[in-house]
């Protein structure tokens, strides 16, 4: 079996008395989209930020491309990328300037060509001279995704990429991400509150509650497990009740 692209072992993070992530062990395979699902404060974003080196884990380890993250931070970061609703690109630069700057930061060889390619791919070519701060939510998301794909990453961390998008744009973004994943055999860790996002795009889902995994499996497996009709019902059930019926074993999947 191929070694996972991303693996965390007993990853924990506490802020004072608050345990944000509790013994999180997960593995993401090449070409797979793994969804991290959970209510606000479940630990999704904290987990993702640890994988980007923005937050230091209290304990546990992160391996990406079979390398220890802390020891090979720069090398790993040059091969991955991320996009988050909560992180903007400089809103006082134009679309074109932003892409050129981030191309350089990620060591992209042909800066101009790559920036052009990304703008075409995400259909924002016509916005090249627009100040980023003047873009609509949908345009801004597409610009963030341009930046996320600028270095041809092997691993992509997407934190609620379709939040604040209307259903039409959200669907287009999902379709595009899925297409690129298939074309590039890309591995993606995906967090969202949008159940449609998760059901449509993720091969496997991890439900987090109070920082720990309570269930892991495909969308259908999870729905069956909780005897609910939709992922949204599962989400509400977990968020309000928090009880685990009989957690599926990660090894089984």
């Amino acid at each position: 079996m191929a070694y996972p692209i991303l693996r965390t072992r007993n990853l924990s993070k506490s802020f004072g008395e608050t345990l944000a992530v509790d013994n999180l062990s997960l593995a993401l395979r090449r070409g797979e989209i793994l969804g991290l699902l959970g209510a606000n404060g479940a630990g999704k974003t904290t987990a993702m930020q640890m994988m980007l080196g923005l937050i230091k884990p209290t304990s546990g380890s992160i391996e990406i491309f079979r390398l220890n993250f802390e020891q090979h931070r720069i090398h790993i970061l040059s091969r991955i990328n991320f996009s988050s609703t909560y992180a903007n690109l400089p809103n006082n630069l134009t679309v074109w300037q932003n892409l050129r700057v981030f191309s350089r930061l990620y060591g992209v060889k042909r800066v101009r060509e790559k920036a052009e390619e990304m703008m075409n791919l995400f259909d924002i070519e016509h916005l090249r001279n627009r100040i980023s701060g003047q873009l609509s939510s949908g345009e801004s998301t597409r610009l963030n995704l341009c930046k996320a794909f600028i270095n041809d990453p092997e691993l992509l961390l997407l934190d609620e990429p379709t939040a604040s998008l209307d259903p039409d744009i959200a669907d287009k973004v999902r379709t595009l991400i899925n297409r690129l994943r298939k074309e590039r055999n890309l591995s993606i860790l995906y967090t969202s509150h949008n159940m449609r996002d998760i059901e449509t795009i993720c091969d496997r889902i991890i439900f987090l509650h109070n920082g720990s995994i309570i269930v892991e499996g495909s969308s259908d497996e999870i729905k069956r497990h909780f005897r609910q009709k939709s992922l949204e019902d599962v989400f509400i059930h977990i968020a309000r009740d928090g009880k685990v019926v009989d957690p599926l074993s990660p090894e089984k999947l």
Partner: peptide
């Protein structure tokens, strides 16, 4: 401060920058 004001710090420090 420019990066803080424009909420760009995460993009910056998640990039391969020493």
């Amino acid at each position: 401060l420019e990066d803080m004001w424009t909420r760009n710090l995460l993009n910056l420090f998640a990039a391969p920058i020493r």
